[in-house]
Structure formats: C-alpha cells, structure tokens
C-alpha cells in the first residue's frame, strides 16, 4: 500500500512572528523554517504504518519554491521513501493547493493520503477536506488514532463533543490532529540516507493544473493588546470585586 503525505514549509512553531515594516506580510528576516507540525505528525503516522508492515511506500509531496526541498529532505530523513516538489513561487490559496494535490494524487494513485489538519501559518484547516471533495473520496479529519484493517481505516477524531469514531473504506483522505503521535527526532543516519533518496521536481503546468488564486493576504497586524488588571490579596477581595465591580457572579 502506498501512502501519500503532504508537507508544508512554515515558520518554526517557536519563532516569534511579527508584522514587517510595510504591514503586508510577516517579518521574514532570519526566520527559521520547519515542516508544518501537523504534517510532521501525518508523516510520522505513515512511516509507522510502513514499519508495521501495513504500507509499502511513503511518498512526501510539497508545493512551493525551491527552498521547500529542505522540508522534503527532512521528510526523507524521517523515513519517507521519495519526495515530490511541485515547484512554484505563486501565492496559492487553499483551493489551488487542493487542485495541485489532487493532480499529484491522480498521478501517484496511493491507497491513503495523510496530511496535517491545518498549517500553522494561515490556520485555515481547509485543504484536506477540499481535496477529498475534488477526488470524491471519504474523509476523516482531526484524527487522533488510525487503525487499518481489511482495506478500511477506523479513525478516532477529536471533535468539540468528544472523540468520534468513523470507519472509512480506503482510499480516503485523513488529516492528523495533535495527539495522533509524537514525531521522532531525525537521526544522523537518516539525514545521510536522505541525500540519496529521490526528490523529483514538477511544475503545476506539468500536472496540467492552472492555478487561479482568488484569496490574498493584504495586511498583517498585531491583535489589540489586553491590559493587565489589578492584583487582589485574597479570595474575599476577589469575590467582592467579581460581585460588585465586574458584576459577573
């Protein structure tokens, strides 16, 4: 069974993100970049399925400029077998990303596609669901546990109401939530081995996709700050203020 995993290049989750001088984008000077943490979890799951003998090949795909090769090399170092970069410098909205991924899916014909539930830059949480719609495949979003058996996946999903369990036939699109697993650290041997693994570069045109971006980020600003209030000395003062000043109890 082949598993396709998408990997997005995003700012390091621990980096301090600020607006740039023009306010049209973030400050990218010296910004560390990383694999989107949710994609890393999806990739870890795919590699574990391969290690458990449930999958035969793990293919990582990214979309972006040449610099996204770095994140694909990380994916290869973690244990993906090969990688595909759909190289474009165009600013893409989620429907465009879904269309490119759908074309890669059609070319690769995997039995399962795993991806993060959202990227930690735009926090949209859209592409997996859009991709499932475009490919007319079942979807299981926000997965916290995946069990494969007899051509189906049993997926536990983190919803606002609790953990929901779905069963879906494969192929399907499954998006990873935080608690699906804890990704491994990349070992040095993996980094060395990754250098000799295949990394193919395509363009959207090679895949027959015309991208048309209809949504643009035009301004970035800091949210309004909340002011610190007062310190209280004990619970009696707290209850009195909550009752008499804030009037919330």
């Amino acid at each position: 069974m082949k598993i396709l995993v998408s990997v997005k290049r995003v700012p390091d989750p621990y980096a301090k993100i600020t607006p740039n001088a023009t306010g049209a984008d973030i400050n990218r000077d010296g910004l560390q970049m990383a694999v989107n943490p949710f994609d890393e979890i999806a990739l870890e799951e795919a590699i574990r399925l391969k290690e458990a003998g449930k999958a035969s090949e793990v293919v990582a795909v990214s979309i972006g400029g040449a610099e996204s090769q770095e994140q694909l090399r990380t994916a290869l170092a973690m244990g993906a077998d090969r990688a595909i970069l759909v190289q474009t410098d165009a600013l893409l909205d989620a429907p465009s990303v879904a269309k490119i991924l759908a074309a890669v899916y059609q070319r690769e014909q995997p039995q399962l596609m795993l991806m993060g539930k959202q990227a930690i830059d735009m926090d949209e949480n859209q592409v997996g669901q859009m991709l499932a719609a475009l490919l007319d495949l079942p979807q299981a979003t926000f997965a916290s546990k995946i069990t494969l058996e007899n051509g189906s996946a049993i997926v536990e999903r983190e919803t606002d109401n609790g953990i929901e369990t779905l069963k879906t036939p494969l192929p399907a699109i499954i998006t990873a939530d935080l608690r699906l697993n804890e990704p491994r650290y990349v070992a040095l041997t993996g980094i060395v081995r990754a250098r000799s693994k295949p990394l193919e570069t395509l363009t959207p045109a090679d895949l027959g996709v015309q991208v048309q971006t209809r949504m643009r980020l035009v301004k970035v600003e800091a949210p309004p700050a909340r002011k610190a209030g007062k310190r209280v000395s004990d619970v009696h003062e707290l209850v009195r203020l909550l009752r008499e000043e804030a009037r919330v109890i």
Partner: peptide, 21 residues
C-alpha cells in the same frame, strides 16, 4: 466548530469556492 471545519471546507471543494475560516 469542528463540525463546520469538517463539513464546510468540503462544501467549498464541491463548489470550487474560496473559503474564509
């Protein structure tokens, strides 16, 4: 909500519509 994130993004895919989350 998790309901709308799950369902409406799929609707956007079906309608080929951009989505604001």
């Amino acid at each position: 909500t998790t309901f709308s994130r799950d369902v409406l993004a799929r609707v956007a895919g079906l309608l080929d519509a951009p989505m604001l989350s």
